[in-house]
């Protein structure tokens, strides 16, 4: 957990700790209102089922269901991810349709939510899950920090084609890995 935290900061992500699931709402609300990242879209994934009705109610968020229109408009994408990888500070995302994936690609800001029970030590230990996910028709995205480039005079700039800000809500507990 400490390593995950350190590596997230190292790669330019912004980690936010939530001791309880309920803490998440306030944190999300703050991100959205501070930066005025509206419209916001999220994807109803099984990773964080309890989150959905509350957020809908609180922010009147857009559901990125099956057509991608809403996702394209969204300035912030919010979504539970499947795993966190401590050694690289990465989020592992298995997606079963492109809209779901686009939610972490198109908006300016991406908020990934991960349970501490879903943290893995390193990339190699994701292999079994990745391979399972691929067999199940998922696309695997491993996200390590914001979108960035150093193509112009080797100067770092964020937010090229993907989000320029990545928040990671690390939520204590959660379902154990099967």
């Amino acid at each position: 957990m400490e390593l995950f935290w350190e590596r997230l900061r190292e790669n330019g992500s912004i980690p936010i700790y939530c001791p309880k699931v309920e803490d998440m709402y306030a944190k999300v609300e703050k991100i959205i209102s501070d930066m005025n990242y509206s419209p916001t879209a999220f994807y109803p994934r099984d990773v964080l089922p309890t989150l959905i009705p509350r957020l809908l109610q609180m922010f009147g968020m857009v559901w990125g269901r099956s057509d991608s229109f809403d996702v394209r408009r969204a300035r912030l994408g919010l979504m539970g991810v499947d795993f966190g990888v401590a050694e690289t500070g990465s989020l592992v995302l298995f997606t079963s349709n492109t809209v779901e994936r686009l939610l972490s690609c198109l908006p300016e800001v991406f908020v990934g939510v991960v349970y501490t029970s879903r943290l893995l030590p390193d990339l190699a230990s994701t292999l079994g899950y990745v391979s399972q996910a691929l067999k199940g028709g998922r696309c695997v995205s491993i996200i390590t920090g914001p979108s960035q480039t150093a193509d112009i005079e080797q100067r770092f700039v964020r937010g090229v084609h993907g989000p320029r800000q990545v928040y990671v809500l690390v939520v204590e507990g959660g379902p154990a890995i099967q």
Binding site: C139, S141, I142, I143, T144
Partner: peptide, 8 residues
């Protein structure tokens, strides 16, 4: 350690 994105 890893690029921002690894897609498989």
């Amino acid at each position: 350690r890893l690029t921002s994105y690894l897609t498989i």
